[in-house]
Write a protein that binds this DNA or RNA. Structure first.
Length: 325
DNA sequence: GGTAGACCTGGACGC
DNA sequence: GCGTCCAGGTCTACC
C-alpha cells in the first residue's frame, strides 16, 4: 500500500489550469492524464524514486490528493511535499496572483498566474538547456531519452524519472551525446550537473538555495546564471522565471514570431526583439507572465485548451514553424 | 559593443 | 531513398 498525502492549496488554485500553463508539463517524466486530469511523475527521494499521481477533486481551491506507488518514510514525505509545492507553485498564494492581475487585468477572469515548473532547480536548468537551439520535438526527445537512459524507475511497471544530479555528473559526455541525442550540449550538461552536486562536492560559490532565496537580487541571480555553462541571455531569463522572478522576457525566435504575427511589429529580428521587450516593459516585475500568457493563449487558439493536450501527440504537432504563417 | 561562424540534430525540400 | 539546406541559442574569436 503506497503512501497517500493531502496538500492544501491556495484558495484560487486549479490543478488543470495551473499545471497546463507551461510547456514543461508535456516533457518527460511529466505525464498529464487528459481524461482523469491528474499529473503523474516519479520523484527522486532518499530511499529511491517514487511515482506519484496528483489529482484535485472539489473545484477551485480544493486540496490535492497525492497517491504514491510505495510507502514513504516521514522524511521522504516532507521532501515529496517540498518538491510538489515547488513544481505546482503552491507557495504562490492567491494574493501573489492578484498582484499580477492588478498589473495585467486581462488574466483576472481566467485566473491564470502560476506557471508549471520542475520539482528541482537542476531539472529546470537542464530542461532549459535542452530547449536551446532546437525545435520543440527535439526538446521532447532529449528529455525522454535522458529519463529512459539515465533515470530510475520506482518499479518494473513505472516510467523512469528525471536523472539525478549525481547520475548525470558521473555520465560521460559521449554517452549523453550518443544515447540521449543532446549533441554539443553533452559537456555542458555534465558540467552543470557537477555544479549542482550536494554540498561538499560542488564549488562553494554554487548554492541552489541562494538562487531560490527572495533576498538575493534579480541582478545577482542573472549574473550568476550567465556564468554557468550553456546559459546565455535567453536561458538565463527563462530560468529566472522558473525561479519566480518574472521581470524579464526570454527573447528568442518565438518572441519575434509573436511580435510579427500578434503584435504587428515590423523590422529586423533584432529590432523586433527590442520592440517586444519595450512593449511588455510597462508590466514591470510581471513582464514575463504578461508575455507568456499571450503566447499561451495563441497556442491554445491553435491547439485547443492546454489541459486537453496529450503529451505524446503534442510532441509531434507542436512546433514553432507550424505557427510561423 | 557588435558580428560572423561553428556547434548538432532533425525536419523540410528537391531530385 | 538520398543529399542538401535550414532553424534554433550559446560560445568564441575578431573587429
Amino acid at each position: 500500500m503506497g503512501t497517500r498525502l493531502r496538500l492544501a492549496t491556495p484558495t484560487d488554485y486549479e490543478l488543470a489550469r495551473d499545471v497546463c500553463s507551461y510547456g514543461y508539463f508535456v516533457l518527460w517524466p511529466n505525464f498529464w492524464d487528459v481524461r482523469r486530469r491528474t499529473l503523474t511523475r516519479p520523484l527522486e527521494l532518499a530511499d529511491g524514486p517514487a511515482t506519484c499521481v496528483i489529482g484535485q477533486s472539489g473545484g477551485t481551491g480544493a486540496e490535492l490528493r497525492v497517491v504514491f506507488d510505495r510507502a514513504l518514510t516521514r522524511g521522504e514525505q516532507g521532501e515529496a511535499r517540498r518538491q510538489i509545492t515547488r513544481m505546482l507553485r503552491l507557495d504562490e498564494d492567491a494574493e501573489h496572483v492578484r498582484a499580477f492581475h492588478a498589473a495585467d487585468p486581462r488574466w483576472a477572469k481566467s485566473g491564470r498566474g502560476r506557471l508549471f515548473r520542475s520539482p528541482t532547480m537542476f531539472e529546470d536548468v537542464i530542461k532549459t538547456v535542452t530547449s536551446c537551439n532546437v525545435a520543440w520535438p527535439s526538446t521532447v526527445r532529449m528529455n525522454r531519452r535522458l529519463c529512459e537512459v539515465l533515470g530510475r524507475a520506482s518499479s518494473r511497471d513505472a516510467p523512469p524519472g528525471f536523472p539525478s544530479v549525481q547520475r548525470v555528473a558521473r555520465t560521460k559526455p559521449g554517452t549523453l551525446r550518443a544515447r540521449c541525442g543532446v549533441g554539443y550540449r553533452d559537456q555542458r550538461i555534465v558540467e552543470l550537473a557537477k555544479l549542482f552536486r550536494p554540498r561538499g562536492q560542488r564549488p562553494p560559490e554554487m548554492d541552489p538555495a541562494w538562487f531560490e532565496d527572495p533576498a538575493t537580487s534579480d541582478a545577482d541571480v542573472r549574473t550568476a546564471l550567465l556564468a554557468l555553462p550553456g546559459i546565455g541571455p535567453y536561458a538565463a531569463a527563462n530560468i529566472m522565471q522558473l525561479l519566480g522572478r518574472y521581470g524579464a522576457v526570454p527573447l528568442d525566435t518565438e518572441s519575434v514570431r509573436h511580435g510579427k504575427t500578434v503584435l504587428g511589429l515590423q523590422g529586423t529580428d533584432r529590432e523586433i526583439m527590442r520592440a517586444v521587450d519595450a512593449h511588455f516593459a510597462p508590466f514591470g516585475p510581471h513582464v514575463f507572465r504578461s508575455y507568456w500568457f499571450e503566447l499561451w493563449a495563441f497556442y491554445e487558439s491553435k491547439q485547443g485548451p492546454a489541459w486537453s493536450w496529450e503529451r505524446d501527440r503534442i510532441a509531434e504537432s507542436f512546433t514553432a514553424a507550424q505557427f510561423r504563417d
